[in-house]
Computed example of a mutant assay.
Amino acid sequence: MLAALAALERPAGAAELRLRLVGEPAHTTVNTVLSRLCDKRLVTRIRDGRQYLYRLAVDETRLVAGRMYDHLRFANDPRSVLSRFVQSLSADEERALRQILDASRPEPA
């Protein structure tokens, strides 16, 4: 749900979001999830006529990265987790990760 909102980059109603989700969740399910995300302050909502429009209230990249870090931090063997993660990357994702790692290294003196 958060990814669908992030991809839109604008407020959207539950019906529009439902169409962007994998599978065919019930409209009531989408509304329930959106309500819970509002309670957690991950999304905000504004009234638009008879419906609510929802907007992402957090930086999705920061949120997902934080979750990844939390999972890694509690792993018994973080090195193995990282290894398995890297093995699961597509060629494009691996290239992007290499570019990020190279850019974060300090220049040699």
Score class of each variant (00 low, 15 high):
residue 75 A to K: 06
residue 69 Y to E: 13
residue 50 R to H: 02
residue 69 Y to D: 12
residue 108 P to D: 00
residue 20 R to G: 05
residue 60 E to W: 11
residue 7 A to D: 11
residue 42 L to S: 11
residue 108 P to K: 00
residue 70 D to R: 13
residue 46 I to S: 14
residue 12 A to H: 03
residue 108 P to E: 01
residue 59 D to R: 03
residue 24 E to G: 05
residue 76 N to C: 07
residue 85 F to V: 07
residue 8 L to V: 05
residue 2 L to V: 02
residue 56 L to Y: 06
residue 13 G to V: 07
residue 31 N to F: 02
residue 37 L to I: 11
residue 29 T to K: 09
residue 42 L to Y: 11
residue 9 E to G: 12
residue 48 D to G: 10
residue 65 A to Y: 03
residue 68 M to R: 08
residue 1 M to H: 13
residue 19 L to H: 02
residue 48 D to H: 13
residue 68 M to G: 11
residue 77 D to M: 00
residue 31 N to K: 10
residue 79 R to G: 13
residue 76 N to Y: 08
residue 70 D to Q: 14
residue 3 A to C: 02
residue 88 S to I: 00
residue 22 V to S: 07
residue 56 L to G: 06
residue 4 A to Y: 05
residue 12 A to R: 04
residue 9 E to S: 13
residue 9 E to K: 14
residue 25 P to S: 02
residue 99 Q to W: 03
residue 1 M to D: 10
residue 54 Y to F: 08
residue 35 S to L: 14
residue 68 M to N: 04
residue 51 Q to E: 11
residue 105 R to K: 15
residue 75 A to P: 04
residue 96 A to F: 03
residue 94 E to M: 15
residue 49 G to P: 03
residue 49 G to Y: 03
residue 45 R to D: 03
residue 43 V to R: 04
residue 64 V to Y: 07
residue 46 I to N: 11
residue 17 L to Q: 05
residue 45 R to C: 07
residue 38 C to L: 10
residue 85 F to T: 09
residue 20 R to M: 11
residue 16 E to Y: 00
residue 63 L to Y: 12
residue 67 R to S: 00
residue 36 R to E: 12
residue 40 K to F: 10
residue 44 T to A: 03
residue 47 R to M: 08
residue 73 R to Q: 15
residue 5 L to Y: 05
residue 57 A to W: 05
residue 63 L to A: 08
residue 92 D to I: 01
residue 46 I to D: 13
residue 52 Y to K: 07
residue 79 R to N: 11
residue 79 R to K: 15
residue 58 V to K: 03
residue 88 S to G: 04
residue 101 L to V: 13
residue 105 R to M: 15
residue 18 R to F: 01
residue 24 E to W: 00
residue 24 E to P: 01
residue 98 R to F: 13
residue 88 S to T: 01
residue 97 L to Q: 10
residue 105 R to I: 11
residue 39 D to Q: 08
residue 32 T to M: 14
residue 11 P to R: 11
residue 69 Y to N: 10
residue 101 L to T: 06
residue 79 R to Y: 13
residue 70 D to A: 15
residue 87 Q to M: 11
residue 60 E to G: 10
residue 40 K to N: 09
residue 22 V to R: 12
residue 43 V to K: 04
residue 75 A to C: 10
residue 107 E to S: 08
residue 91 A to R: 14
residue 48 D to F: 11
residue 35 S to D: 14
residue 70 D to V: 12
residue 40 K to L: 15
residue 20 R to E: 10
residue 51 Q to N: 08
residue 19 L to V: 02
residue 91 A to K: 12
residue 104 S to R: 14
residue 43 V to W: 04
residue 86 V to S: 06
residue 36 R to T: 05
residue 109 A to M: 00
residue 102 D to Y: 09
residue 58 V to D: 01
residue 29 T to R: 09
residue 3 A to I: 07
residue 26 A to C: 04
residue 19 L to R: 10
residue 58 V to W: 01
residue 34 L to W: 06
residue 70 D to S: 13
residue 13 G to I: 05
residue 96 A to C: 04
residue 39 D to S: 06
residue 49 G to L: 03
residue 62 R to K: 00
residue 108 P to R: 01
residue 15 A to E: 05
residue 27 H to D: 05
